[in-house]
């Protein structure tokens, strides 16, 4: 394991995973906000909103993430001049966050929507019967119960998001998979150890994350 006794290599490794962490955190926030909005649109009584929500899900769920991230870079940034920062790394980072968010939001939306379907229709009727508006019913009664019903699937989506974040490496961010490629290129004799360390890091962080979400799902479940 000579590779990882070199402090410059350690730095590459740490920096790579820090980018993954930041991409996952910002992507998760973006995807959650967007996904909840989209789910609200898809169950709303307004046909236009329903249409937009459905179109979003169908477009982004069925487009490869690599293409979406490429589009964020070559389309939004290069062609359309959509610049999010003067710093090239920061710019690539935020372009990556946009790509990950719009993509993951489609999955979050569908998870929340299936959660909405687990809430008995009587809950919404009771809310309407005391005079709540559609938005109040959704926000105060339906979404909190729907969200608690889909903690486990949301966990899976966020775990996938953490791994998908490596795709942002394709637009030049030195996240973990790019870092791994760089270390392998420079240390051809240690391909297997390098690979195992990078893959192992994902596993060591994500396996407990999965259990955490499982535990949360049980804890937050609405008793009926």
């Amino acid at each position: 394991m000579d590779v990882f006794s070199d402090s410059a290599n350690i730095d590459t490794y740490v920096t790579g995973f820090l980018w993954i962490l930041k991409l996952t955190a910002a992507g998760a926030v973006g995807a959650l906000v967007l996904g909840v909005l989209l789910a609200g649109m898809r169950v709303s009584p307004v046909p236009v909103l329903r249409g937009v929500g459905t179109a979003w899900v169908n477009i982004f769920r069925n487009t490869p993430l690599t293409l979406i991230v490429f589009f964020c870079y070559f389309g939004l940034y290069s062609a359309l001049g959509f610049e999010l920062s003067d710093d090239i790394d920061t710019n690539n980072y935020w372009l990556g966050v946009v790509g990950l968010s719009v993509y993951t939001a489609a999955f979050v939306c569908e998870a929340i929507r299936s959660g909405i379907n687990t809430v008995p229709v009587g809950q919404a009727e009771a809310a309407r019967a005391i005079g709540m508006s559609f938005l109040q019913t959704l926000r105060i009664i339906i979404l909190p119960q729907a969200g608690r019903a889909v903690v486990a699937p949301l966990g899976s989506i966020f775990i996938a998001l953490a791994k998908n974040a490596t795709i942002v490496g394709t637009i030049g961010l030195m996240e973990s998979s790019s870092a791994m490629k760089e270390l392998i290129n420079a240390n051809g004799d240690a391909v297997i150890p390098i690979f195992l360390v990078f893959a192992g890091t994902f596993a060591v962080v994500l396996i407990p994350t999965g259990y955490l979400f499982g535990w949360l799902a049980n804890r937050l479940a609405v008793k009926r």
Binding site: A126, A129, I130, G131, M132, S133
Partner: peptide
Amino acid sequence: AQLRSEVGMVFQSFNLFAH
């Protein structure tokens, strides 16, 4: 919504907000 707030309703299945 205003009208509904003036008319109380009690359901067969109670429909208390579970959370």
